[in-house]
Design a protein around this nucleic acid. Sequence first.
DNA 1: AATGAATGAGCTTTCATTCAT
DNA 2: CATGAATGAAAGCTCATTCAT
Lengths: 222, 222, 222, 222
Amino acid sequence: VTSSRSPRATPRRLPPDAPEPEKRRAILHAAVRVFAEKGYHGCRIADVARGAGVAYGLVYHYFQNKDELLESVFAEQWTILLAALKAIQEGPGSAGEKIAGVLGFVLDVFKTAPTAVRVLILEVARTPRVLRSGSTPETFFSAIGILAEVVKAGQQAGELRDDIEPVVAATGILGALEMTVTGLVVGLVRPVGPSEDQIDLVKGQLVTMVLAGLRAPGPRAG
Amino acid sequence: VTSSRSPRATPRRLPPDAPEPEKRRAILHAAVRVFAEKGYHGCRIADVARGAGVAYGLVYHYFQNKDELLESVFAEQWTILLAALKAIQEGPGSAGEKIAGVLGFVLDVFKTAPTAVRVLILEVARTPRVLRSGSTPETFFSAIGILAEVVKAGQQAGELRDDIEPVVAATGILGALEMTVTGLVVGLVRPVGPSEDQIDLVKGQLVTMVLAGLRAPGPRAG
Amino acid sequence: VTSSRSPRATPRRLPPDAPEPEKRRAILHAAVRVFAEKGYHGCRIADVARGAGVAYGLVYHYFQNKDELLESVFAEQWTILLAALKAIQEGPGSAGEKIAGVLGFVLDVFKTAPTAVRVLILEVARTPRVLRSGSTPETFFSAIGILAEVVKAGQQAGELRDDIEPVVAATGILGALEMTVTGLVVGLVRPVGPSEDQIDLVKGQLVTMVLAGLRAPGPRAG
Amino acid sequence: VTSSRSPRATPRRLPPDAPEPEKRRAILHAAVRVFAEKGYHGCRIADVARGAGVAYGLVYHYFQNKDELLESVFAEQWTILLAALKAIQEGPGSAGEKIAGVLGFVLDVFKTAPTAVRVLILEVARTPRVLRSGSTPETFFSAIGILAEVVKAGQQAGELRDDIEPVVAATGILGALEMTVTGLVVGLVRPVGPSEDQIDLVKGQLVTMVLAGLRAPGPRAG
DNA sequence: AATGAATGAGCTTTCATTCAT
DNA sequence: CATGAATGAAAGCTCATTCAT
């Protein structure tokens, strides 16, 4: 693992104005695929280049090094996910509806882009320290933060039980979600090649369970 | 010329009767440490050998190769964990108590051996396909199976709600547990260097939440 | 972790059209030298690379692994030799002349490139099964086949005695040739540093003996 | 190749009186087998020990090191062969009969112990310099020497043509013999699993050819 | 922007040899 | 005599990274 090399001199990110070159895109996409397929360490940049149909060296033209490439993959995926979560958080609806929204969103994305979700889910928090720290502050744990906000709001509104710390609750929720997706990915929860209906079924049960676990044991809430 | 070698006659596993050699133990222990510290790929067998205080080659005397070594680490840890889960499952108590027991057990172990738990938690299901498949059938998913049994029994006893499939429930529970441990490990849920009290606190909240999520919405159970 | 690699898509052989890179040549040449000097097993890749004046890794850029490298050496040398034999076979002249031609050709080559011949002669059929089988069908035994054809033609023309099977004859001829070259190589037949005259002398005697052994015991051949 | 290690301190040959220990025998036998099967370098002493059914270290009890072991194998085999050749040389009969005797002897031995012959034939002169030189003066080339004596005697007796140097003749003869055996071993000359009759056939043709090649072109000798 | 040959440090694996028992 | 665990140097192979074109 050569991660801790030089202190990132020129972050070869694009100048903000220029349109993103097509091949950079291709590389990034290929990286997601290869990454999802072989994991962080099994992912050789030769594979990525081949997968993108570009020359070996071009990867290094667009990305400083392997770590920056993978970091970009993460960043991109997380940016999307976090934006969605934030939108849900700031949108209308009760805390319960928002939580259900988050669970539903992730599982819906999974239906259309299991590979990307797989990358996000299976590899996060298992990548070298260096990769996570600093340069990519957006991680699973940002997601936990957002969800914790939702929970806290729900508690203050009396909707959710308040004998559980928001962070603990959020952690549990996302854990359950992640493992469920993992289960779907590896074919545990359901036979592989996930039919959408099955996923919806699972989604419903997951939402039920999670909300029941958080709902304030109010005066006969139903 | 590795080509003309005959395929290892004697699998380097121990004969089942013989007592395990002290140094094999040492290597295994060192492997857990190094593994936990550097992750699967950062783990060089040179480190393991040094950590165990043995010569380089001895690792290869006891283990076929790096993969088999790490596989053994997994297998060992899982064997322990699964045995404990099974004991809980087959022991006395209601489904709720058993589930609480599982959550408590894992978090208790974490208090005494965070490193080992970390290995189990952080690296499992993130290791190369090859490693997981076949040789080590005991994985996280066996654990899910056991827990699903507990849930099913609870449902049949009318103790737990039955509108959630046991596997889905078990997946959610273990997911929440895993993410909680991860949170503890990476210092999200609480500041690092986990004081036991804090862990107990978290444990209580997790149990509360999980059980609330599963309990049958009975006639005013309180 | 070599396990999860996908089996090399592109065989590192050259595309048949492209001109052979200069350094590949250099590596091959160096391999012949080192190989001849130290034999199959004494031949370390590091030596070859150093001998060719290239970096270690480049060897693996052009050749899959050590075995493939040495296989290429063999293949190349044999290709040359077999082409020459075929040319002789298909050329003009009596069977006796052709046999003499073969013997002469090999010994002449030996005069100018003893190293290469040495590789061919001393290492052939002593290399691991794997190396010989399949991928390099051109071996000593193809040479025997060609020579057997010559013998058979000579027999049918009444020039050579026909109470000996062509294959047996060819085997004997090439055996005598090989051992003679070996003798020259190791300095048995003549003091080392073979003077050309001495070789010519030996050549003459060998040809005499071989032809006498095969000639049809005709009506007073003289 | 660790051949050139220390200058053989204690040649751990047995004291000449003691009977050879049974296990030493076993090791030697196993060495022949493994050697024949895998060649000089593929032959690991672990294999030999296992093949002999003795402990790893015992090999080192009886033999200084790997080279000495293999040397012993050679020495033993050659001792037998050279004794036989010498007996033939010093026995009665014409030069032609003696040459035929040598060819016949080797091919007969091959019928009963192809493995041993294979070792002798396929590996000789391909083993590291060190092994051949000095300690084991008995090599293929001693055999050539003996045969050359026979030829010389035949020439002086007017039986064999004298326009060929004895050494050259002997080299050719043994070369033809070796290659023929090789051909039999690898199944070129005849389908594998050599039926004895086929070998006898080949033997007859080989003798015919060799003698015809050497016989003095006398006054109508027939 | 694009290419891919070239580099070499770093890691895994092998195996002859030693030695305590 | 006999054992086999222990040692460690040596060599094969990988792959991130560079660079001339």
